[in-house]
Nucleic acid binder design. Structure first.
Lengths: 190, 190
DNA sequence: TATTTAAGCTAATACCATTAGTTTTTGTGG
DNA sequence: CCACAAAAACTAATGGTATTAGCTTAAATA
């Protein structure tokens, strides 16, 4: 059946991300991944160092995809428009890749350079877009924390079905961002 | 060793919550719980229907504890003060019971009446505190979604070590809430 | 006190990750 | 073209997990 499957780490990670999106993050097991790839699970160890490393790689991949989406969305805009676009892109990413999105927030364990780099990159994108509001050094940090909280909280609750009612969630998101930005002066250290 | 351990479901859930808080949510296994309680794991099935039900019960327990904390904090206050107090209580709960807090957002699976009730109770607390802002029927729903997003996002990111820098996170939280409330008019449907 | 019920137990099954050791394919140097 | 070395697959085995079945015994009750 298999004179060589021709796997590599990238293939593994992409396939694992598909499992995460379609069957949930709990279904990402080496056994399931091996079956999807037509291989026995010990064979995966030729390409990746075990489940934990797979999860770390998923997080890195997810963060990089998320970065791209946010960057594309906000590129060329500034101020409120940029924030709204970036926020919408963030949430849309979580919607379209729910499993992959979840993996981005589930890989602390031991530090990993590549992972920190991917995480820092997103942070930079958010910092950039907050610069327009001239909040000062500290104010800016608080404001970035705030925006990240908003986006992650919204994406996460929506994903878990936390917003039961029928009311349009896109409206909720854009108004949430508007409200936050409208009061952004409160982030300044006085 | 054990002429009867005298277990019941509540004992199981409380012990499981301790494991979650002290060793992480991944460490909540029936094997670990049984060991902690001085019993063999099949014995747990006399009190609970398996790991999934344990998780559901943990979520219910966590939501109920969280409700209490939020209610105690906001009780007697209104407006900005109430929102700040409730927000602080929410985040403090997540800080002091990190594992139990996580379980509250990890039990969709098949619906469970008791779980929905616990969840609705928290929703009601948040709705109450938003009523002071007179946002109209729809506006209120959007506003509640917003506040929940803020609180969950903040608690979750802080827990995962997402706020790397040394800057005081309590300040970040209170300013985040202030900013949101300052712009809350944007939640109204015009 | 006899009996029933429920809470514990052991044994067994099935699935998972991981390691060790083996086979086989593939690419490369002669 | 052939030999060989490296890499990628494999099988087998270990130890951990949840769960089920069936047994034993303590506790409650009639």
């Amino acid at each position: 059946m298999s004179p060589r499957a021709g796997l590599d780490r990238r293939t593994l990670v992409i396939a694992a991300a598909e499992i995460a999106d379609h069957e949930g993050i709990e279904a990402v097991t080496l056994a399931a991944l091996a079956k999807k790839l037509g291989v026995r699970s010990p064979s995966l160890y030729n390409h990746i160092n075990g489940l934990q490393e797979l999860r770390t790689q998923l997080a890195i991949y997810g963060l990089s995809e998320l970065s791209n989406a946010m960057n594309n969305a906000a590129n060329g805009f500034s101020g409120d428009v940029a924030v709204q676009a970036m926020g919408r892109a963030y949430v849309d990413f979580a919607r379209s890749r729910p499993g992959l999105y979840e993996t981005t927030l589930r890989a602390p364990e031991q530090a990993n350079m590549e992972l920190e780099k991917a995480s820092d990159h997103i942070l930079k994108l958010i910092i950039d877009v907050m610069k327009d509001y001239h909040l000062g050094e500290e104010g800016e940090i608080h404001a970035v924390r705030g925006l990240r909280s908003i986006l992650h909280g919204f994406a996460s609750l929506e994903q878990k079905g936390g917003f039961g009612m029928a009311l349009d969630t896109n409206v909720s998101l854009s108004r949430l961002i508007s409200s936050y930005i409208a009061g952004i002066g409160n982030m300044k250290s006085k």
